[in-house]
Amino acid sequence: MDQKKKGDKMIVTNIDAVPGKNIVEHYGIVQGSTVRAKHVGVDCIAGCQNTFGGELKGYSTLLEESRKEAITRMEQQAGHLGANAVINVRFGTSTITQGASEILAYGTAVKVE
């Protein structure tokens, strides 16, 4: 029956349920955030690319990494509470100062069975 069990991997979804499982306990909101800045080199290249438009690859990767980091931190926080899944996850981004932005991920920590 438990042949599909993969260790203690945290299940993260942005729907309000975990498929195939029942929520047995709520632990409230959990969040993970990270503030990132890119070094001057990438910033300069982005400044040049800004002239002609198009995608800024340097920033795309920067923000992708940051978002993964934010999710990991959110998972850690949920893990400390004893949860094994995070549902209803949402993202947010905001610019803090020049060259730095905050990436936020938040959701509801739950225990599923």
């Binding site: 910033d43 982005a46 920033y59 947010g92 981004t93 020049q98």
Partner: peptide
């Protein structure tokens, strides 16, 4: 989700 990052680029 969308956000404006304009002030991130010093040269932009």
């Amino acid at each position: 989700e969308m956000s404006k990052l304009d002030s991130m680029a010093r040269g932009g």
